[in-house]
């Protein structure tokens, strides 16, 4: 059985907000390591990999591995019934036909209990090879969200060019073109806002902005984001949390 108590329930609400528009149904794979999820979007262009490590919960107990098949829209609706400061406890027994959710307020005088029906999901699990990327950009997650949203005004796609001087996001469309360049600035006072680049080789890649904008729904989870790129392989957009991560992989657009 699974029992996982999350002191900051808001984290789970934010996680659901970050994935529910990309994926409809997914298995939460629970093991003694924690709760993991991997799923592709419906059009098989993007992949989401989520990990909530066991040490993010107190207590965390999972005697044997369980796959909890969840409709994410339904789960996020139920999670909207939890207060932002509530402690959230997830429970499922080994038959795993329902997921029990308990929300306790901080004064511990209001306890709400919900049960969500689970479903059998026959999902493909993809093996993600360890990759050494040609370029890794670490930057403010809010800045990344702003750039994606701004450039979406101009085009469906963005060209990302990384050199040792900086990273340039450019878009061209019917109404014109636009570009935002962030210079590498590791010495700025505000560490949270610094743009840092690790570069083996310059890269220039094209990606769909619609997906990137969707990924930025994870912005409330982390102040920093990393973009890992190599020629003609999927972009990795990673938001690190205190006890886990959310990683989005996006297949590039190739050719003219």
């Amino acid at each position: 059985m699974l029992e996982a108590r999350l002191q900051t329930g808001a984290l789970l609400k934010k996680v659901l907000e970050a994935i529910k528009e990309l994926i409809t149904d997914a298995n939460f794979d629970c093991s003694d390591n924690g709760i993991a999820l991997q799923a592709m979007d419906n059009s098989h262009v993007a992949l989401v990999a989520l990990l909530l490590r066991h040490d993010g919960f107190e207590p965390y107990r999972c005697d044997r591995s369980l796959a909890l098949g969840v409709n994410l829209v339904s789960l996020s609706k139920v999670l909207r019934c939890a207060g932002n400061d509530d402690i959230i406890t997830l429970k499922a027994d080994d038959t795993a036909d329902v997921l029990s959710l308990t929300f306790e307020n901080t004064d511990n005088d209001r306890i709400s209990e919900y049960e969500l029906k689970l479903m059998d999901i026959d999902s493909e699990h993809l093996g993600i090879p360890d990759t050494t990327y040609e370029a890794v950009v670490q930057m403010s997650s809010a800045e990344f969200a702003r750039i994606c949203k701004d450039l979406q005004v101009l085009s469906d796609s963005v060209q990302i060019d990384v050199t040792k001087e900086g990273v340039k996001f450019g878009a061209k469309g019917e109404l014109g073109s636009g570009a935002v360049t962030l210079k590498q600035n590791g010495n700025v006072d505000k560490e949270e806002e610094a743009t840092l680049i690790e570069l083996q080789q310059n890269v220039s890649l094209n990606f769909s902005l619609k997906y990137l904008v969707n990924f930025t729904k994870a912005t409330p989870l982390a102040s920093r984001v990393s973009l890992s790129m190599s020629s003609e392989v999927p972009l990795l957009v990673e938001y690190k949390m205190e006890a886990g991560y959310i990683r989005y992989y996006l297949a590039p657009k190739i050719g003219e």
């Binding site: 592709m40 098989h44 262009v45 993007a46 992949l47 493909e124 699990h125 993809l126 093996g127 993600i128 090879p129 796609s157 094209n206 769909s208 392989v233 999927p234 992989y249 996006l250 297949a251 590039p252 657009k253 190739i254 050719g255 003219e256």
Partner: peptide
């Protein structure tokens, strides 16, 4: 325009 590639062409099914 550039063509969108499927993510499945990069990662194998396990």
């Amino acid at each position: 325009a550039a063509a969108q590639v499927s993510i499945k062409s990069f990662f194998h099914t396990v």
